[in-house]
Computed example of a mutant assay.
Amino acid sequence: MTSYRHAARTAAIAAAVTAAALTLAACGGDNGSPSSTASTSASSSASAPAPAAGSAHNAADVSFAQSMIPHHQQAVEMADLAATRASSAEVKKLAAEIKKAQAPEIKTLSGWLTSWDAQVPTQGSMDHSGHSMPGMMAEGDMSTLEKASGPAFDTAFLKLMVKHHEGAVEMARTEKSDGADRSAKDMAGAIITSQSAEITRMNKLLDQ
């Protein structure tokens, strides 16, 4: 009798242990459980790539980039002259700031044109008289500036650069109203703001 009770007790304990093990296994391996689902969802969200943020462009964007490249390039050429010919420290500082701002924009504009499968204007071989963009200097203007130095250069540089900036602002306003590419329109807005401020600054220097 005692042997029977002992065997029965042992069997009951074994059954309880087996049931507990099966329950734990079911809880840990249930892919439909809240914890498992949340973990899978979080993992999928973390590994999913962000959608591409493309921006459409139109003919106005292409025209803006193709025109602004030689326009900027001429401003950089003028700024390079100021480094050795200007007598005013303010003019030299302004010229350096113009070059620092516009040289990188030339690269950006060129990159946009390449991505749009549009022609990129050749850099380093400018015919100043061949451009009809607002504010562009004629060949004679550039020649006069190259020959000037000291206070005469300062005055000529400021007057010509004011006109040059006014042309850039005009072009940028056209891009803001007619363009479609968000980045190009943002650059146009930045040009309007920065170059308008520089126009005011240059006019003050001319009045001194």
Rank of each mutant, 00 (worst) to 15 (best):
P49V: 05
Q119Y: 12
M137S: 08
S125L: 03
H71L: 03
S177F: 01
H165A: 00
D186I: 08
H131M: 09
M161Y: 02
A48K: 09
S45T: 11
Q66P: 08
H131F: 12
A19G: 13
M1K: 07
T18L: 15
L160I: 00
L94G: 11
A184K: 04
D117G: 03
E198D: 14
V169T: 05
K163R: 11
S3E: 14
T193K: 14
A53N: 13
G140Q: 05
A188L: 06
A152H: 02
D154Y: 05
P134T: 03
M137I: 04
A11Q: 15
A168L: 10
S55M: 07
I98E: 11
T144G: 05
R201G: 04
E146T: 12
G28P: 02
A50K: 11
A52I: 10
S194A: 06
W116E: 11
A168W: 09
G140M: 02
V17R: 00
P51H: 14
A96Y: 08
A82G: 07
S39D: 14
T10C: 07
A168V: 01
S63D: 10
A11F: 15
E198C: 04
K147S: 07
M136K: 03
A138H: 10
S88D: 09
D117I: 04
Q102W: 05
A79W: 02
D117H: 15
L205Q: 03
T10E: 12
V76F: 02
F157A: 00
K176M: 04
T122F: 14
A83V: 15
A8H: 10
H6Q: 11
A50E: 15
D207L: 10
W116Q: 15
K147M: 01
K163V: 06
S3N: 13
A148E: 15
H128R: 03
L94H: 01
K185T: 06
D207V: 08
V169D: 05
S196A: 11
D207Q: 10
V169P: 02
P104M: 00
V120L: 13
H71G: 00
L81Q: 12
V76N: 11
K147P: 09
H72M: 02
R173L: 02
A86I: 00
T40A: 15
G140I: 00
P49F: 09
A48D: 12
D127L: 05
E105Y: 10
A16Q: 07
H71V: 05
I13Q: 06
L22H: 01
Q195P: 06
I98A: 04
H72Y: 09
L22Q: 02
K176W: 00
T144N: 12
T37G: 01
L160Y: 04
A16C: 07
T114R: 12
D80N: 13
S183V: 12
L113P: 12
S45I: 04
S196G: 05
T84Y: 08
R9F: 13
F153S: 05
M136R: 02
A56T: 13
A79Y: 01
E139Q: 14
A148T: 08
K107C: 07
A42V: 09
A148W: 14
H165F: 03
A12Y: 11
A20M: 12
